[in-house]
Design a protein around this nucleic acid. Structure first.
Lengths: 191, 191
DNA sequence: CCCTTTCCGTACGCCAGCGTATGGAACGCA
DNA sequence: TGCGTTCCATACGCTGGCGTACGGAAAGGG
């Protein structure tokens, strides 16, 4: 590995942030991983927390803002947008498991803040889609929270105990169908 | 604090396991918390991992087996059992937030194993309830996974970013209603 | 070609946890 | 009361992370 830029450190940090959690964003292990030493790191960054903050910023950008932008650019129909969102998000979490290991030790204030931002942004977007599809605001919000909860829990299961999840593609599709049903069911099914 | 038994250490370990995660199950911090020293600990336990395993065993017993036993003893009707389960579980996660912080860093093999056991046991129980209520096995299993995912995600939100969850009791009840709807909806609503 | 700026390697001190050794306190029983 | 067993405190070495200091290599413009 030739000379490194700050960006190389951030990229590596995001990688281990997703796979091994925030605690794994450590200077010396990352340096070993990159084939360099702490000397490089402390030239590009002021501290370990500095790197962690940069990695969290990038994670927010990649996993939330960019996804929303892609969907907004793909189609106009809100239902179609929601279906695309569900598909993207589930496939994404299946392709690279351990996606949100960072949700774990949320004692770090910066991690907490990033998680809150992501949750608000995502739930807000889903609720907006549901409102655009004709649901009243309260119902849309409620179902968005439920859908995001199901997503978080599903990702957690896929990460920690993948054995309990349905294996075949047909079973996975059935699970998604059930969730989509929940999202778009007409209002009168709720008492 | 007078003389301690191994049980006192396990109780304290479970407490910090739930509030601060597995990494917080550390010998010296626990000793400080108990007003004693490592000398006591290493007389009762062989190692730190030994204590962690004991704490996880107790967590499984308290949070899964005992809950199921209580429900089985309360009523016979499967629908009533499910409603009771939902109520117990949500109230429990609201009373003591940070309940499953341990779901985070599941890189520890023993933590992983405990989580897998809990997930299988819980999903299996919910699926059994749904089958008893008349749902076909495949649908019951699917909805049990979805419900448990929603529970996990909800707990995670309550733990990390409680601000995004509905606040009032009416809103919370509406969320539970939506989830119950999902669980007991007749089969023909799924395509 | 040289010198300045940019970048990296190494050595050091610090902190915090794990596990061990050992002496001694506290308890129980005769 | 005496004594053996049970329990705990202290001191120590080890590991592994963070952050700093400083020397030196690697560009790159003049």
């Amino acid at each position: 590995m030739a000379r490194l830029a700050a960006d190389d450190w951030i990229t590596a940090a995001v990688r281990v942030l997703l796979t091994d959690g925030p605690d794994a964003v450590a200077v010396q292990p990352l340096a070993r991983r990159l084939g360099t030493t702490k000397g490089s790191f402390y030239w590009h960054f002021a501290s370990r927390d500095d790197l962690l903050r940069a990695a969290l910023r990038r994670w927010l950008q990649l996993g939330t803002e960019d996804v929303i932008d892609t969907i907004e650019g793909a189609t106009e129909d809100p239902v179609e947008r929601a279906r695309l969102l569900i598909r993207m998000v589930t496939e994404h979490s299946l392709d690279n498991p351990g996606q949100l290991r960072l949700l774990a030790t949320a004692d770090h204030p910066d991690v907490r803040a990033a998680l809150e931002t992501a949750a608000r942004r995502r739930i807000g977007y889903v609720a907006r889609l549901l409102r655009a599809a004709g649901l009243p605001a309260a119902v849309a919000r409620r179902r968005a929270v439920l859908a995001y909860s199901a997503y978080l829990g599903h990702a957690q299961l896929a990460d920690t105990t993948p054995g309990v999840l349905p294996t075949g593609p047909a079973a996975r599709r059935a699970l998604l169908t059930a969730l989509t049903e929940l999202l778009f069911a007409s209002v009168d099914t709720e008492t």
